Simulated scan of single mutants.
Amino acid sequence: MATLAPPPSGSQAVRPRVGQSWLWRLQLLLSNYLPLLLMALLAAGTWWLVKNTPAPDGPMEPVPPRHVPDYRMEGFELQRFDAQGQLRFRIEGAEMRHYPDTDTIEIDQVRLSATGPDGSLTLATAKRAVGNGDGSELQLMGDVSVERYEAGKDGVLADQPRLRMDGEFLHAFLNRELLRSHLPTRLRYAGGDIQARSFEYNHLDGRLSFGGRSHARIAPRSPRP
């Protein structure tokens, strides 16, 4: 497993060796953008979906736990606004189900979007999403795609994403501030393309780890004038 530690800073900063330059560039980029992806996924996660679920009309008699949903929402779209009335998060899906025995929420054909204070946009789609009731974990499964678009000084979004992640699985942990996938994942960013057998990003210590055999294609830097 290859592990990238946070780049040194301050007086301890050193110039990377030539053979490590692409790793250095990748670490700098991902340390800036993966936390944003993590926070966007979790902030738009299940914890506030639970607050929008329908309440029962009256008291209900206790029943033996069964793994069957106690409510469904079809063709739904839920939005969250900030104090200034600006749209920050949106969750859409073909169907959402809540299972009381495990206190989990499942969403089919999920689409998440999160807009940052600077106008940047994070989009995530998957065939299925599963989250626990307290919103501390969110799993995206099947044709997972996460894109990060930057906004210019004029507030206009870029035509192409600055960073894109594609795979079949993505697991986000709120309390541990962790992004992980045990399945092959492709990371594409300006000037680079990495295909990893697995990866883990820990925001608390800034470490990015790749498992198994990974392949990277890095475009050479433009020569300085």
Rank of each mutant, 00 (worst) to 15 (best):
P54L: 06
T115E: 05
A83Q: 12
V63F: 10
N132I: 05
S145H: 12
E106R: 09
L29P: 02
P62I: 09
V146Y: 05
R97N: 12
R88E: 05
G93R: 00
A124F: 02
R88H: 04
V146T: 12
T125L: 11
A114V: 01
L140G: 00
G135C: 11
P69W: 03
T115L: 11
R72N: 14
S31Q: 15
L26M: 13
Y71A: 08
D103K: 11
G75N: 15
L38G: 12
L26C: 06
E137G: 08
P56Y: 03
G85I: 09
L157E: 04
V110L: 07
V18C: 10
L42R: 10
M73R: 03
D70M: 07
F76C: 02
Q160S: 12
G75E: 10
E150L: 15
R17V: 06
D134M: 00
R111W: 05
R97G: 10
R128D: 00
D101Y: 01
L28F: 04
Y33R: 11
W48D: 07
L28D: 12
P59E: 09
A55S: 08
L23A: 12
D70E: 15
D143K: 14
T46N: 05
R66I: 08
D154N: 08
Q84W: 12
R90N: 10
I91W: 00
A83M: 08
T102I: 09
E74M: 07
K127D: 14
I91R: 13
L123V: 09
T53W: 13
D143S: 15
Y99S: 01
D134G: 04
L78E: 05
G135I: 13
R80G: 06
L49Q: 10
R128N: 06
E106G: 01
E147P: 01
I105Q: 00
Y71S: 11
V18N: 13
L30V: 14
D134E: 13
T104R: 08
A94C: 03
R128P: 01
R90P: 04
M96S: 10
D70A: 04
R66M: 09
A40H: 04
F81V: 08
W22I: 03
M73V: 12
D108E: 05
E74C: 09
S113V: 04
D118G: 06
A43S: 15
S21F: 13
A151Y: 09
P161V: 06
S120G: 15
G119I: 00
L121G: 02
V144E: 09
A158K: 13
D118F: 04
G133L: 02
A94H: 08
F81W: 07
G116R: 15
P69H: 05
D118T: 13
D159N: 14
S21T: 07
T115V: 09
L123H: 13
D103S: 14
M141T: 13
R111H: 12
A44H: 00
R90H: 02
A40R: 02
D154A: 11
T102S: 15
L87G: 00
A44F: 02
Q27W: 02
R88F: 02
L140S: 03
Q84I: 06
Y33W: 11
